[in-house]
Simulated assay, not measured.
Amino acid sequence: MVDIPVELPAGPETVTGDWTVGDREDIVLIAHGAGAGKDHPFLVGLADALGAEGLSTLRFNFPYVEKGRRMPGPAAHAIATWNAVVAWARTQEPSARVWATGKSYGGRMASMAVAEGLVVDGLAYLGYPLHAPGKPEKPRAEHLPVIATPQLFIEGTNDPFIQPLEQFETVVSTCQNARVAWVDGGGHSFEVKGQKRPAAEIGASFARVIAEFIRG
């Protein structure tokens, strides 16, 4: 467990992370979704499998989780956390490439941080929440075309956060450097009807595609 200082408008706070050292040429930072912290089995499974690929990983919490709250705080707090976590990672190995990965909310907050100037080598989203379910008229995409950093969207074809798919594909087409890895039949947590798999196993299944993205 590591402690990472974060400068917030109300003063400094600390978030915790789980740091595993692998290939020091690449560090993968892993953020949680809105409803679960860094220790969700999906993220633990992903981190373990990325470690098996030889990559260094850091799973971390946002400040609201550290305080025991269920709902995210202001986006500015999450963006500040992303900046702090990337800075911390660079102190571990200044020459390493740093990759930002996040489940749903965590990935979207990473994209907003990068659009505002945070420098990472790539972004990998695990279920990007384009809009709230049933509200495609309110997409969260205006900042995505600004991002020049390579982006990988890992998405389930049945995810209500990106329906209709045509709208999502149009958004991706506006990005400068982006591609999609589809999970046929997958929902927002990549559950597939008729297939029962532990969350850790589902998370681990994406390590190879992320590793290929990093090394490609």
Rank of each mutant, 00 (worst) to 15 (best):
M1R: 14
M1C: 13
I4C: 01
I4E: 06
P5W: 11
E7Q: 13
P12S: 15
G17Q: 02
G17D: 07
D18A: 13
T20Q: 14
R24E: 15
E25A: 09
D26W: 08
A31E: 04
H32T: 03
H32A: 10
G37M: 07
D39W: 05
L43Q: 05
V44F: 07
V44Y: 06
V44A: 12
G45F: 01
L46G: 05
A47E: 04
A52E: 13
E53K: 13
F60Y: 09
P63Y: 04
Y64S: 01
K67V: 01
R69L: 00
R70P: 00
P72H: 00
G73I: 03
P74W: 01
A76V: 12
H77L: 11
A80E: 08
A80M: 05
W82L: 03
A84L: 13
V85F: 03
V86N: 03
A87F: 08
Q92V: 12
P94N: 03
V98G: 01
W99D: 02
R108I: 04
R108V: 06
G117T: 08
L118S: 06
D121P: 02
P145R: 04
P145N: 05
A148F: 12
T149W: 00
Q151C: 11
F153W: 04
I154S: 03
E155M: 12
P164M: 09
L165G: 10
L165Y: 10
E166S: 10
T170P: 07
V171M: 10
V172C: 11
S173M: 14
T174W: 12
C175D: 07
R179G: 10
W182D: 01
W182F: 14
D184M: 13
S189L: 15
V192D: 06
K193S: 15
Q195T: 15
P198L: 09
I202P: 03
R208D: 15
